[in-house]
């Protein structure tokens, strides 16, 4: 039973990070039907900014959890700026173009950002400081669930509640939902659609940056390539849950995290990815739009 719980918590931690990144994919897709392949790179840039800012903070004598918060805030601002710029230069000029064009543009941006970080930073793995301190009260259960896992779970939980509030309760959220339902109608009722799209990119990037900083300080290393693998997994989670659906992305992330964790724990870690992608295929066969996705009727 202990073992089951350990795997459950491990899967939950991993899954909640997938969910954070998947939200960015799904929100963008929901509004402009674009798979933003450069999203994984935003996550990676968030981690790098976190590393740089954490280094600076340490020099100026900050310590403990305050460094984590400062690094996360800086990463959010920086990554959001990247997300905003990305949309402005790579996707906005292609609005209205056939769907394949922005997709190719997204792949191009992904390659560009990876190589930019590779050249500007290094190809080597860099150590990421352990920003999440080991809490005293966690010590008796540290073998079971550590402080970093706790921080990751609490942070993602709070972030998701805030996101839900933003979308359900605020005027901006209402505008986002309207844009998602029908872009030209939203424009007619006076919503600045371009601004809403930019905002979606900014929010998605901020979530990815939070994920980047949390994961980097959890596993203690960053590299220009981490965004690719995380991006692939998060994209899988988004599709699994139903791309375009926000609760779907969260559910998809968690299901994927648990599948991987249990597959590694009870079967073999050799087959971790086999189970993860096998599940994806199975769900797409049974529910082509994903677990919570709505099949849209094609208007002819």
């Amino acid at each position: 039973m202990d073992y089951f719980l350990e795997l459950f918590l491990g899967g939950l931690t991993r899954g909640s990070i997938y969910a954070l990144i998947a939200l960015g994919y799904t929100m963008v897709y929901g509004i402009i039907q674009l798979i933003n392949f450069a999203h994984g790179e935003i996550y990676m840039i968030g981690a790098f900014v976190g590393l740089i800012v954490a280094g600076i903070c340490t020099i100026y004598g900050f310590s403990g959890i305050s460094v984590l918060i400062l690094a996360a805030i800086a990463a959010i601002i920086w990554a959001s700026a990247y997300g905003y710029t990305l949309e402005k230069i790579a996707y906005r000029p292609l609005r209205g173009a056939p769907r394949l064009s922005p997709l190719i543009s997204a792949i191009g941006m992904s390659i560009f950002l990876q190589n930019y970080v590779l050249l500007a930073q290094t190809s080597d793995f860099l150590p990421f400081p352990n920003l999440i301190p080991d809490f005293e009260f966690m010590e008796p259960v540290a073998y079971f669930i550590g402080s970093p896992e706790l921080v990751i779970l609490v942070t993602t939980f709070v972030t998701m509640i805030l996101l839900t509030l933003l979308i359900k309760k605020t005027k901006v959220g209402k505008a986002m939902r309207a844009t998602q339902q029908d872009m030209s109608m939203a424009r007619l009722v006076g919503i600045n659609v371009d601004r809403i799209i930019s905002l979606t990119f900014v929010i998605g990037s901020a979530l990815a940056a939070i994920g980047g900083v949390l994961v980097a300080s959890y596993i203690g290393q960053v590299n220009f390539y981490i965004g690719f693998l995380a991006g692939v997994k998060a994209f899988t989670a988004a599709v699994l849950g139903g791309i375009g659906s926000i609760p779907g992305a969260v559910l998809g992330g968690l299901v994927l995290g648990w599948t991987e964790s249990f597959a590694a724990g009870y079967v073999s870690s050799d087959y971790e990815d086999v189970f993860a992608f096998g599940l994806l295929v199975l769900i797409l066969i049974l529910r082509p739009a994903g677990i919570l996705g709505k099949a849209r009727k094609q208007k002819v």
Binding site: A230, F262, A264, G265, S269, E272
Partner: peptide
């Protein structure tokens, strides 16, 4: 005796298994 995926986000499940 198992293989793990290089570059995976974390190895917590396999580490738990080693402990078990």
């Amino acid at each position: 005796f198992e293989g793990v995926t290089p570059g995976a986000m974390d190895y917590s499940s396999i580490i738990q298994k080693v402990r078990r």
